[in-house]
Design a protein around this nucleic acid. Structure first.
Lengths: 219, 219
DNA sequence: ACGGCGATTATACACGCGTACAACAAACGG
DNA sequence: CCGTTTGTTGTACGCGTGTATAATCGCCGT
Protein backbone atom coordinates (compact mmCIF):
# COMPACT_ATOMS: atom_id res chain seq x y z
CA UNK A 1 0.00 0.00 0.00
CA UNK A 2 1.45 3.30 -1.15
CA UNK A 3 1.22 6.48 0.94
CA UNK A 4 -1.79 8.22 -0.59
CA UNK A 5 -1.01 10.87 -3.13
CA UNK A 6 -2.28 14.27 -2.12
CA UNK A 7 -5.68 15.30 -3.48
CA UNK A 8 -5.95 18.59 -5.30
CA UNK A 9 -8.21 20.84 -7.33
CA UNK A 10 -7.27 22.52 -10.55
CA UNK A 11 -7.61 26.25 -10.34
CA UNK A 12 -7.28 29.21 -12.62
CA UNK A 13 -3.87 30.61 -13.39
CA UNK A 14 -4.84 33.95 -11.87
CA UNK A 15 -6.02 32.38 -8.66
CA UNK A 16 -2.83 30.38 -8.26
CA UNK A 17 -0.54 33.26 -9.08
CA UNK A 18 -2.24 35.62 -6.66
CA UNK A 19 -2.23 32.99 -3.92
CA UNK A 20 1.50 32.46 -4.38
CA UNK A 21 2.15 36.20 -4.42
CA UNK A 22 0.07 36.73 -1.29
CA UNK A 23 1.85 33.90 0.50
CA UNK A 24 5.21 35.39 -0.45
CA UNK A 25 4.25 38.80 0.86
CA UNK A 26 2.93 37.44 4.12
CA UNK A 27 6.06 35.42 4.79
CA UNK A 28 8.43 38.26 4.02
CA UNK A 29 6.37 40.59 6.19
CA UNK A 30 6.45 38.15 9.07
CA UNK A 31 9.96 36.78 8.95
CA UNK A 32 11.96 38.71 6.40
CA UNK A 33 13.09 37.62 2.94
CA UNK A 34 14.86 34.54 4.25
CA UNK A 35 11.58 33.14 5.56
CA UNK A 36 10.04 33.15 2.10
CA UNK A 37 11.43 29.84 0.84
CA UNK A 38 9.74 27.95 -1.94
CA UNK A 39 8.64 25.31 0.54
CA UNK A 40 7.16 27.81 2.99
CA UNK A 41 5.47 29.77 0.22
CA UNK A 42 3.91 26.73 -1.37
CA UNK A 43 2.74 25.39 1.97
CA UNK A 44 1.02 28.67 2.82
CA UNK A 45 -0.55 28.83 -0.62
CA UNK A 46 -1.84 25.29 -0.22
CA UNK A 47 0.19 23.73 -2.99
CA UNK A 48 3.44 21.81 -3.36
CA UNK A 49 6.79 23.46 -4.12
CA UNK A 50 6.96 22.28 -7.71
CA UNK A 51 3.94 24.33 -8.69
CA UNK A 52 5.79 27.57 -8.16
CA UNK A 53 8.01 26.79 -11.09
CA UNK A 54 4.97 25.99 -13.16
CA UNK A 55 3.62 29.52 -12.81
CA UNK A 56 6.86 31.42 -12.40
CA UNK A 57 10.01 30.79 -14.33
CA UNK A 58 12.04 31.04 -11.15
CA UNK A 59 11.66 32.05 -7.56
CA UNK A 60 13.18 35.39 -8.49
CA UNK A 61 10.34 36.03 -10.88
CA UNK A 62 7.84 35.33 -8.11
CA UNK A 63 9.76 37.78 -5.97
CA UNK A 64 9.51 40.45 -8.62
CA UNK A 65 5.80 39.83 -9.03
CA UNK A 66 5.30 40.14 -5.29
CA UNK A 67 7.16 43.44 -5.18
CA UNK A 68 5.18 44.77 -8.12
CA UNK A 69 1.94 43.82 -6.39
CA UNK A 70 3.06 45.49 -3.18
CA UNK A 71 3.90 48.79 -4.82
CA UNK A 72 0.76 48.81 -6.94
CA UNK A 73 -1.37 48.12 -3.89
CA UNK A 74 0.18 50.86 -1.80
CA UNK A 75 -0.07 53.59 -4.38
CA UNK A 76 -3.65 52.54 -5.13
CA UNK A 77 -4.65 53.07 -1.49
CA UNK A 78 -4.04 56.78 -1.73
CA UNK A 79 -6.10 57.17 -4.87
CA UNK A 80 -8.90 55.08 -3.36
CA UNK A 81 -9.09 57.48 -0.45
CA UNK A 82 -9.87 60.52 -2.57
CA UNK A 83 -12.71 58.70 -4.28
CA UNK A 84 -15.94 59.23 -2.43
CA UNK A 85 -14.79 62.30 -0.57
CA UNK A 86 -15.90 65.88 -1.13
CA UNK A 87 -14.50 68.16 -3.80
CA UNK A 88 -12.76 70.56 -1.42
CA UNK A 89 -9.02 70.60 -2.24
CA UNK A 90 -7.96 70.69 1.40
CA UNK A 91 -10.31 67.87 2.27
CA UNK A 92 -9.05 65.74 -0.60
CA UNK A 93 -5.41 66.27 0.32
CA UNK A 94 -6.12 65.50 3.96
CA UNK A 95 -7.88 62.28 3.03
CA UNK A 96 -4.97 61.26 0.81
CA UNK A 97 -2.44 61.85 3.57
CA UNK A 98 -4.50 60.14 6.24
CA UNK A 99 -4.94 57.05 4.11
CA UNK A 100 -1.20 56.55 3.99
CA UNK A 101 -0.79 56.97 7.73
CA UNK A 102 -3.23 54.38 9.02
CA UNK A 103 -3.62 50.65 8.55
CA UNK A 104 -3.42 48.77 6.33
CA UNK A 105 -0.73 51.00 4.84
CA UNK A 106 0.72 52.03 8.19
CA UNK A 107 1.65 48.53 9.26
CA UNK A 108 4.84 46.95 10.49
CA UNK A 109 4.44 44.03 8.13
CA UNK A 110 4.17 46.35 5.15
CA UNK A 111 7.32 48.23 6.13
CA UNK A 112 9.28 45.04 6.69
CA UNK A 113 8.04 43.75 3.35
CA UNK A 114 9.03 46.97 1.61
CA UNK A 115 12.42 46.99 3.31
CA UNK A 116 13.03 43.34 2.60
CA UNK A 117 12.96 44.00 -1.12
CA UNK A 118 15.10 47.09 -1.02
CA UNK A 119 18.42 45.57 -1.99
CA UNK A 120 16.83 43.70 -4.86
CA UNK A 121 15.40 47.00 -6.07
CA UNK A 122 18.87 48.42 -6.23
CA UNK A 123 20.41 45.50 -8.08
CA UNK A 124 17.56 44.56 -10.42
CA UNK A 125 16.85 47.19 -13.10
CA UNK A 126 13.30 45.94 -13.58
CA UNK A 127 12.48 46.33 -9.90
CA UNK A 128 14.20 49.69 -9.88
CA UNK A 129 11.84 50.72 -12.62
CA UNK A 130 8.84 49.54 -10.62
CA UNK A 131 10.05 51.47 -7.60
CA UNK A 132 10.70 54.61 -9.55
CA UNK A 133 7.34 54.47 -11.28
CA UNK A 134 5.47 53.92 -8.01
CA UNK A 135 7.35 56.70 -6.28
CA UNK A 136 6.82 59.20 -9.07
CA UNK A 137 3.16 58.23 -9.45
CA UNK A 138 2.52 58.76 -5.77
CA UNK A 139 4.42 62.02 -5.75
CA UNK A 140 2.55 63.18 -8.81
CA UNK A 141 -0.81 62.53 -7.16
CA UNK A 142 0.42 64.58 -4.25
CA UNK A 143 1.61 67.37 -6.49
CA UNK A 144 -1.75 67.57 -8.28
CA UNK A 145 -3.57 67.77 -4.96
CA UNK A 146 -1.24 70.56 -3.89
CA UNK A 147 -1.71 72.47 -7.10
CA UNK A 148 -5.47 72.35 -6.58
CA UNK A 149 -5.16 74.23 -3.31
CA UNK A 150 -6.41 77.82 -3.28
CA UNK A 151 -3.03 79.49 -3.04
CA UNK A 152 -0.95 81.83 -5.13
CA UNK A 153 1.04 79.39 -7.27
CA UNK A 154 4.79 79.78 -7.34
CA UNK A 155 6.80 78.42 -10.23
CA UNK A 156 8.70 75.21 -9.50
CA UNK A 157 7.49 75.37 -5.95
CA UNK A 158 4.97 72.56 -6.03
CA UNK A 159 7.51 70.01 -7.18
CA UNK A 160 9.65 70.66 -4.13
CA UNK A 161 6.60 70.76 -1.92
CA UNK A 162 5.45 67.41 -3.26
CA UNK A 163 8.88 65.91 -2.64
CA UNK A 164 8.87 67.18 0.91
CA UNK A 165 5.32 66.01 1.61
CA UNK A 166 6.14 62.62 0.20
CA UNK A 167 9.24 62.38 2.36
CA UNK A 168 7.36 63.41 5.47
CA UNK A 169 4.66 60.83 4.83
CA UNK A 170 7.26 58.14 4.18
CA UNK A 171 9.17 58.96 7.33
CA UNK A 172 6.06 58.95 9.50
CA UNK A 173 4.98 55.73 7.82
CA UNK A 174 8.23 53.98 8.71
CA UNK A 175 8.50 55.31 12.24
CA UNK A 176 4.86 54.89 13.09
CA UNK A 177 4.88 51.33 11.84
CA UNK A 178 8.11 50.29 13.44
CA UNK A 179 7.66 51.96 16.81
CA UNK A 180 3.90 52.13 17.33
CA UNK A 181 4.27 52.28 21.10
CA UNK A 182 6.14 55.60 20.80
CA UNK A 183 3.03 57.40 19.56
CA UNK A 184 -0.47 57.97 20.84
CA UNK A 185 -3.32 56.62 18.71
CA UNK A 186 -3.93 58.90 15.78
CA UNK A 187 -0.91 61.01 16.66
CA UNK A 188 0.89 60.08 13.45
CA UNK A 189 -1.99 61.28 11.30
CA UNK A 190 -2.37 64.46 13.33
CA UNK A 191 1.31 65.27 13.05
CA UNK A 192 1.28 64.54 9.34
CA UNK A 193 -1.68 66.80 8.66
CA UNK A 194 -0.42 69.56 10.93
CA UNK A 195 3.11 69.54 9.52
CA UNK A 196 2.14 69.36 5.89
CA UNK A 197 -0.36 72.13 6.54
CA UNK A 198 2.43 74.24 7.97
CA UNK A 199 4.67 73.53 5.00
CA UNK A 200 1.95 74.51 2.55
CA UNK A 201 0.59 77.42 4.55
CA UNK A 202 -2.90 76.02 5.07
CA UNK A 203 -4.81 74.42 7.93
CA UNK A 204 -5.42 70.81 6.99
CA UNK A 205 -6.69 69.84 10.43
CA UNK A 206 -9.73 72.02 9.81
CA UNK A 207 -10.72 69.76 6.94
CA UNK A 208 -10.82 66.37 8.57
CA UNK A 209 -14.52 65.85 9.05
CA UNK A 210 -14.24 62.57 7.21
CA UNK A 211 -11.86 61.27 9.87
CA UNK A 212 -13.64 59.97 12.96
CA UNK A 213 -11.37 60.76 15.89
CA UNK A 214 -8.64 63.10 14.81
CA UNK A 215 -8.23 66.78 14.41
CA UNK A 216 -9.00 67.76 17.96
CA UNK A 217 -5.74 66.65 19.52
CA UNK A 218 -3.73 69.80 19.07
CA UNK A 219 -4.10 72.88 21.26
CA UNK B 1 54.14 17.66 -0.03
CA UNK B 2 51.20 19.18 1.76
CA UNK B 3 49.42 22.23 0.40
CA UNK B 4 51.01 25.02 2.43
CA UNK B 5 49.03 26.16 5.38
CA UNK B 6 47.98 29.74 5.16
CA UNK B 7 50.22 32.27 6.90
CA UNK B 8 48.66 34.67 9.34
CA UNK B 9 49.31 37.31 11.97
CA UNK B 10 47.77 37.44 15.37
CA UNK B 11 45.87 40.64 15.91
CA UNK B 12 44.03 42.33 18.71
CA UNK B 13 40.52 41.34 19.52
CA UNK B 14 39.26 44.83 18.77
CA UNK B 15 40.92 44.91 15.37
CA UNK B 16 39.45 41.55 14.39
CA UNK B 17 35.99 42.36 15.64
CA UNK B 18 35.84 45.68 13.85
CA UNK B 19 37.16 44.13 10.63
CA UNK B 20 34.47 41.47 10.76
CA UNK B 21 31.79 44.03 11.52
CA UNK B 22 32.93 46.27 8.68
CA UNK B 23 33.01 43.35 6.26
CA UNK B 24 29.49 42.38 7.29
CA UNK B 25 28.19 45.90 6.75
CA UNK B 26 29.82 46.22 3.36
CA UNK B 27 28.41 42.95 2.13
CA UNK B 28 24.89 43.67 3.32
CA UNK B 29 25.06 47.13 1.78
CA UNK B 30 26.22 45.70 -1.54
CA UNK B 31 24.17 42.57 -1.88
CA UNK B 32 21.59 42.44 0.88
CA UNK B 33 21.54 40.25 3.97
CA UNK B 34 21.79 37.05 1.97
CA UNK B 35 25.18 38.08 0.60
CA UNK B 36 26.67 38.30 4.08
CA UNK B 37 27.53 34.65 4.56
CA UNK B 38 30.19 33.58 7.02
CA UNK B 39 32.42 32.62 4.13
CA UNK B 40 32.04 35.92 2.30
CA UNK B 41 32.47 37.92 5.50
CA UNK B 42 35.61 36.11 6.53
CA UNK B 43 37.09 36.38 3.06
CA UNK B 44 36.53 40.14 2.98
CA UNK B 45 37.95 40.51 6.47
CA UNK B 46 41.04 38.55 5.42
CA UNK B 47 40.50 35.58 7.71
CA UNK B 48 38.98 32.12 7.51
CA UNK B 49 35.38 31.30 8.40
CA UNK B 50 36.17 29.58 11.66
CA UNK B 51 37.49 32.75 13.18
CA UNK B 52 34.07 34.34 13.23
CA UNK B 53 32.92 31.86 15.81
CA UNK B 54 36.01 32.60 17.85
CA UNK B 55 35.03 36.24 18.28
CA UNK B 56 31.27 35.94 18.09
CA UNK B 57 29.20 33.24 19.66
CA UNK B 58 27.20 32.89 16.48
CA UNK B 59 26.65 34.63 13.20
CA UNK B 60 23.56 36.18 14.69
CA UNK B 61 25.67 37.87 17.32
CA UNK B 62 27.91 39.32 14.63
CA UNK B 63 24.79 40.56 12.89
CA UNK B 64 23.63 42.29 16.05
CA UNK B 65 27.03 43.90 16.53
CA UNK B 66 27.00 45.17 12.96
CA UNK B 67 23.57 46.71 13.41
CA UNK B 68 24.59 48.33 16.67
CA UNK B 69 27.66 49.81 14.99
CA UNK B 70 25.56 51.12 12.11
CA UNK B 71 23.08 52.90 14.32
CA UNK B 72 25.75 54.33 16.60
CA UNK B 73 27.67 55.64 13.61
CA UNK B 74 24.68 57.30 12.02
CA UNK B 75 23.45 59.09 15.12
CA UNK B 76 26.98 60.22 15.85
CA UNK B 77 27.25 61.93 12.46
CA UNK B 78 24.60 64.46 13.39
CA UNK B 79 26.24 65.37 16.67
CA UNK B 80 29.63 65.66 14.95
CA UNK B 81 28.19 68.22 12.59
CA UNK B 82 27.20 70.67 15.31
CA UNK B 83 30.66 70.56 16.80
CA UNK B 84 32.83 73.20 15.27
CA UNK B 85 29.99 75.33 14.00
CA UNK B 86 28.84 78.68 15.30
CA UNK B 87 26.54 79.15 18.28
CA UNK B 88 23.57 80.50 16.34
CA UNK B 89 20.58 78.19 16.90
CA UNK B 90 19.42 78.34 13.29
CA UNK B 91 22.93 77.65 12.03
CA UNK B 92 23.33 74.68 14.34
CA UNK B 93 20.02 73.18 13.33
CA UNK B 94 20.81 73.68 9.64
CA UNK B 95 24.18 71.98 10.05
CA UNK B 96 22.57 69.05 11.84
CA UNK B 97 20.00 68.57 9.10
CA UNK B 98 22.49 68.95 6.27
CA UNK B 99 24.80 66.34 7.79
CA UNK B 100 22.06 63.73 7.56
CA UNK B 101 21.24 64.57 3.96
CA UNK B 102 24.65 64.22 2.35
CA UNK B 103 27.17 61.39 2.09
CA UNK B 104 28.23 59.34 3.89
CA UNK B 105 24.86 59.26 5.62
CA UNK B 106 22.87 59.87 2.45
CA UNK B 107 24.08 56.78 0.68
CA UNK B 108 22.32 53.92 -1.04
CA UNK B 109 24.52 51.37 0.71
CA UNK B 110 23.58 52.79 4.10
CA UNK B 111 19.88 52.63 3.31
CA UNK B 112 20.10 49.07 2.01
CA UNK B 113 22.07 48.11 5.10
CA UNK B 114 19.51 49.74 7.38
CA UNK B 115 16.64 48.12 5.50
CA UNK B 116 18.31 44.74 5.45
CA UNK B 117 18.24 44.56 9.21
CA UNK B 118 14.69 45.78 9.60
CA UNK B 119 12.95 42.48 10.04
CA UNK B 120 15.52 41.36 12.58
CA UNK B 121 14.86 44.55 14.50
CA UNK B 122 11.22 43.62 14.74
CA UNK B 123 11.81 40.06 15.88
CA UNK B 124 14.83 40.52 18.15
CA UNK B 125 14.06 42.48 21.33
CA UNK B 126 17.69 43.46 21.77
CA UNK B 127 17.88 44.98 18.28
CA UNK B 128 14.53 46.64 18.83
CA UNK B 129 16.04 48.29 21.88
CA UNK B 130 19.01 49.50 19.85
CA UNK B 131 16.71 50.90 17.20
CA UNK B 132 14.46 52.63 19.70
CA UNK B 133 17.40 54.14 21.56
CA UNK B 134 19.01 55.44 18.38
CA UNK B 135 15.74 56.86 17.11
CA UNK B 136 14.89 58.60 20.36
CA UNK B 137 18.44 59.91 20.77
CA UNK B 138 18.41 61.43 17.31
CA UNK B 139 14.96 62.87 17.82
CA UNK B 140 16.00 64.29 21.16
CA UNK B 141 18.99 66.07 19.62
CA UNK B 142 16.61 67.53 17.10
CA UNK B 143 14.15 68.61 19.76
CA UNK B 144 16.87 70.36 21.78
CA UNK B 145 18.00 72.23 18.68
CA UNK B 146 14.41 73.28 18.02
CA UNK B 147 13.89 74.44 21.59
CA UNK B 148 16.97 76.64 21.27
CA UNK B 149 15.38 78.57 18.43
CA UNK B 150 14.30 82.15 19.19
CA UNK B 151 10.58 81.53 19.09
CA UNK B 152 7.67 81.76 21.47
CA UNK B 153 7.63 78.24 22.93
CA UNK B 154 4.34 76.36 22.85
CA UNK B 155 3.73 73.53 25.30
CA UNK B 156 4.01 70.05 23.82
CA UNK B 157 4.69 71.57 20.46
CA UNK B 158 8.37 70.81 20.13
CA UNK B 159 7.88 67.09 20.59
CA UNK B 160 5.55 66.95 17.61
CA UNK B 161 7.83 69.25 15.65
CA UNK B 162 10.81 67.01 16.38
CA UNK B 163 8.86 63.94 15.26
CA UNK B 164 7.90 65.65 12.04
CA UNK B 165 11.41 66.94 11.34
CA UNK B 166 12.83 63.50 12.00
CA UNK B 167 10.30 61.93 9.64
CA UNK B 168 11.03 64.45 6.93
CA UNK B 169 14.75 63.86 7.22
CA UNK B 170 14.28 60.10 7.17
CA UNK B 171 12.04 60.25 4.13
CA UNK B 172 14.44 62.47 2.20
CA UNK B 173 17.29 60.24 3.27
CA UNK B 174 15.63 57.14 1.86
CA UNK B 175 14.40 58.70 -1.36
CA UNK B 176 17.55 60.67 -2.03
CA UNK B 177 19.69 57.60 -1.50
CA UNK B 178 17.56 55.22 -3.50
CA UNK B 179 16.75 57.45 -6.43
CA UNK B 180 19.65 59.89 -6.67
CA UNK B 181 19.01 60.53 -10.35
CA UNK B 182 15.60 61.99 -9.53
CA UNK B 183 17.14 64.99 -7.77
CA UNK B 184 19.54 67.73 -8.67
CA UNK B 185 22.78 67.91 -6.67
CA UNK B 186 22.12 69.49 -3.31
CA UNK B 187 18.40 69.57 -3.96
CA UNK B 188 17.69 67.15 -1.12
CA UNK B 189 19.46 69.36 1.39
CA UNK B 190 17.79 72.48 0.06
CA UNK B 191 14.35 70.92 0.26
CA UNK B 192 15.04 69.64 3.76
CA UNK B 193 16.16 73.02 5.04
CA UNK B 194 13.38 74.89 3.29
CA UNK B 195 10.61 72.55 4.43
CA UNK B 196 11.74 72.27 8.02
CA UNK B 197 12.11 76.02 8.08
CA UNK B 198 8.52 76.35 6.91
CA UNK B 199 7.32 73.90 9.54
CA UNK B 200 9.09 75.80 12.31
CA UNK B 201 8.37 79.26 11.00
CA UNK B 202 11.99 80.30 10.44
CA UNK B 203 14.28 80.71 7.45
CA UNK B 204 16.93 78.04 7.69
CA UNK B 205 18.31 78.68 4.21
CA UNK B 206 19.54 82.06 5.41
CA UNK B 207 21.85 80.30 7.87
CA UNK B 208 23.79 78.00 5.63
CA UNK B 209 27.06 79.86 5.26
CA UNK B 210 28.87 76.74 6.41
CA UNK B 211 27.55 74.85 3.41
CA UNK B 212 29.53 75.45 0.25
CA UNK B 213 27.04 75.29 -2.61
CA UNK B 214 23.53 75.32 -1.26
CA UNK B 215 21.08 77.93 -0.15
CA UNK B 216 20.87 79.84 -3.39
CA UNK B 217 18.79 77.38 -5.33
CA UNK B 218 15.35 78.60 -4.37
CA UNK B 219 13.68 81.67 -5.86
C1' DA C 1 -18.39 7.41 -20.93
C1' DC C 2 -13.92 7.99 -21.92
C1' DG C 3 -9.45 9.64 -23.94
C1' DG C 4 -6.07 12.97 -23.67
C1' DC C 5 -4.23 17.32 -22.15
C1' DG C 6 -1.85 19.60 -18.70
C1' DA C 7 -2.13 21.25 -13.91
C1' DT C 8 -0.30 19.28 -9.86
C1' DT C 9 2.40 16.18 -7.10
C1' DA C 10 6.45 13.61 -5.68
C1' DT C 11 11.18 12.61 -5.71
C1' DA C 12 15.89 13.42 -6.45
C1' DC C 13 19.99 16.27 -7.02
C1' DA C 14 23.75 19.51 -6.41
C1' DC C 15 25.01 23.26 -3.87
C1' DG C 16 25.87 26.60 -0.14
C1' DC C 17 24.71 27.50 4.41
C1' DG C 18 26.03 27.83 9.69
C1' DT C 19 28.27 25.09 12.90
C1' DA C 20 31.64 22.00 15.39
C1' DC C 21 36.14 20.55 16.37
C1' DA C 22 40.86 18.97 16.00
C1' DA C 23 45.31 20.37 14.27
C1' DC C 24 48.57 23.93 13.84
C1' DA C 25 51.68 27.93 14.58
C1' DA C 26 52.51 32.73 16.22
C1' DA C 27 53.61 35.27 20.01
C1' DC C 28 55.16 35.69 24.65
C1' DG C 29 57.25 34.58 29.36
C1' DG C 30 60.89 32.50 31.54
C1' DC D 1 65.94 28.92 23.47
C1' DC D 2 62.22 26.20 24.79
C1' DG D 3 57.22 25.44 26.68
C1' DT D 4 52.81 27.20 27.02
C1' DT D 5 49.06 29.61 25.60
C1' DT D 6 45.62 30.64 22.37
C1' DG D 7 44.56 32.99 18.02
C1' DT D 8 43.86 30.92 13.62
C1' DT D 9 43.36 27.47 10.20
C1' DG D 10 41.38 23.40 7.76
C1' DT D 11 38.06 19.94 7.32
C1' DA D 12 33.94 17.65 7.99
C1' DC D 13 28.95 17.31 8.95
C1' DG D 14 23.98 17.87 8.66
C1' DC D 15 20.56 20.62 6.94
C1' DG D 16 17.76 23.53 3.93
C1' DT D 17 17.86 25.74 -0.30
C1' DG D 18 16.28 26.38 -5.49
C1' DT D 19 15.85 23.57 -9.35
C1' DA D 20 14.86 19.70 -12.61
C1' DT D 21 11.95 16.11 -14.12
C1' DA D 22 9.09 11.94 -14.17
C1' DA D 23 4.75 10.21 -12.45
C1' DT D 24 -0.01 11.06 -11.50
C1' DC D 25 -4.80 12.31 -11.81
C1' DG D 26 -8.41 16.20 -12.17
C1' DC D 27 -10.96 18.06 -15.65
C1' DC D 28 -12.89 19.18 -20.32
C1' DG D 29 -14.30 18.04 -25.12
C1' DT D 30 -16.42 14.82 -27.60
Amino acid sequence: MQPARRLYRRESEESRRSALIAATQELVAEGGPEAATVRAISERAGVTPGLIRHYFQSKDELTRAAYRALMDGMTAKGDDAIEGVGAGPEERLAAFIAASLRPPVLDAGAVVLWAGYMHKVRSDPELMGVHEAAYLTYRDSLQKLIEALPRAPRTGQTRREAIACNALIDGLWVEGSLLPSAFAPGEIITIGLHSIGAMLGIDLLAHTSMLPDFGKMLP
